[in-house]
Amino acid sequence: MFTTPATAGEHAAASVRAGLTRQDRDVAGMAMLATLLFTTLVTLFILVALLAQVIGESSSLLGERGVDFVTSPIGSDPDKIGVWSGLYGSIFIGVFVVLVAIPLGLAAAIYLEEYANAKHRLTRLIMVNIRNLAGVPAVIYGVLGFILFTQWLEPVTNGQSVIAAGLTMALLVLPIVVITSMEAIRAVPGSLRDAGFGVGASRWEVTRDHVLPYAAPGILTGTVLSVARALGEAAPLIIIGAITGLLPETSLTGKFTAIPILIYQWTGRPKPPNSEFAFTESAAAAGLVLLVIVLVFNASAVLLRNRFEKSRVGS
C-alpha cells in the first residue's frame, strides 16, 4: 500500500462523500425537535391565553376606575369595591415569607449541607422529613397555622391576623426554601471549598465568602418560587380566617384578607342587577394586581441574582 491508483482514490473519495452526506439519521431528530417545539408553544399559548383573559375581563373596570380600584376597601357594591385590604394582606404575607421563611430555611440548608454529618441517621431522618413536608397539602398547613398561631400564640398574633397568616405561609414554604437552597449549596464545586480551606479559612469563612455567593443565584430562584407560592395560596387563609365581607381598616393585628381570597369570593358572586360592573370583572382585576405583586417580588430577586452572578466570575 505504498502507492494508490488514481481510480481507487476516486472511488474512496466517493464512498467517503456518500457517508458524510447522508441525512437519514436526522429524521428522528427533526421529529423530536418538532415535538419539543409544539409542547413549548402549547405552554406559551396557555400562558398568553390566561393573561389575555385576565386583561380582557378587567380592562373596562380598570380603565374606568384605575387607581381607585387598588385603593378602595372591599364591600358589597361591585362598582365601589377595591383590593386595598387584600393588597395590604398579600404584601405582608410576602414580607413575612421573605423575613421569616428565607433566613430560617437558608440557615437550615447551610447546616444540613455544610455542617451536619450526611451519613448520620438523624441527619438523614431530618432530610427525609423535610422532603415529605414539601409535599404536604396547603390546607393541612392552614390547620397547623390555625392551631399554632391563632390559638397557642394568640398573645403574639392577636388571633386571626395577618401576622398569623404570614407565619402560616412562611411555614408552608419553609421546606421549599430548605430544599432549593440545599440543592444550590450542593452544586457548589468542592474545589472551591478546598481552595478556601487550603489558605486556612474556617468552615464559616468558607461558607460566607465562597459557598453562599456561588450558591446565591440558585437560592434566589428558590425564594422566588416560594414567595410566588405563598402569594397565590388561598386554602390556608380560609382556615386561618381571612375576611370576605366588610373590612374597612387594615392593620397588623386586626382582621385581614388577601388577594387570592378576594378572587375566590368574587368569582362566585352574581352580578347585582343595578351595577355597572360584575364581581367577576373585579376578580380578574384583582388577579392582575396579584400578578403585578409577584412580578415585583421576582424582579427584585432577579436583579439581586444578576448582581451575584457578576461577582461569581470576579469583577
Partner: peptide, 10 residues
C-alpha cells in the same frame, strides 16, 4: 495547599 486542578476563587 495547592491542588491538582487550578482552583482560583471566582
Amino acid at each position: 495547599m495547592v491542588f491538582q486542578k487550578p482552583n482560583p476563587f471566582p
